[in-house]
Amino acid sequence: MFLLAEMKNVTRILPEQFHMKLNDAIAGELNEKLANKVVLNVGLCIALYDILSLQESYIFPGDGASHTRVKFRFIVFRPFIEEILVGRIRSCSQEGVHVTLGFFEDIVIPPTALQHPSRFDENEQAWVWEYDTGDGNKHDLFMDAGEIIRFRVTAETFNETCPAGPSSMQETQESNENKIPYLLTGSINEPGLGLLSWWKNM
């Protein structure tokens, strides 16, 4: 679920940080810039792993800060497609089951990818797997918020959320608020997937 992404950057260090070791100052700068941010087509950045190389630092006319070309590796959360993950149910809605890992919340399991047959219970606000016990009876298995769930990652969607120009400001602001930069789609329609408690005694 985690991998290393190699990146390059020109990092600007303000004079007030000149008392620090260059490595530490740059590491702090990179972590501040990237930690807990989604980079398009890369994934959710967690923390700096290491610095591969530093080139000479430059000072430009009119700017007291130093600029250093740096090559580094960052720890990134990006599960591969088909990976099996374990998370917790955040909530259920008509759109499906929303799952969270704590540090990453944008995971949805659409109704078509739930165990078959499932229905949405409006009173309980939860999806229910109508498990066929084999003798013609149905056993309702509720998927309540907070339960631990195992799912397969089936798709990932990256969305550009960069700010737009002033002319279209208002509408983009509204659409940006609902835009999810990195969305994972999951499925649980295989034996062994779904709430851990369903498969305990197999």
Binding site: M1, F2, L3, L4, A5, E6, M7, K8, N9, K33, V39, N41, V42, G43, I46, A47, Y49, K71, R73, I75, V76, R78
Partner: peptide
């Protein structure tokens, strides 16, 4: 910023766990 390689290596959960604990 420039991405050189979006996936240069996979990390196991253990490696990430240890690295983050060092940071903490």
């Amino acid at each position: 910023m420039e991405i050189v390689n979006a996936n240069s290596a996979s990390l196991s959960n253990l490696e990430v766990f240890k690295h983050l604990q060092k940071i903490k």
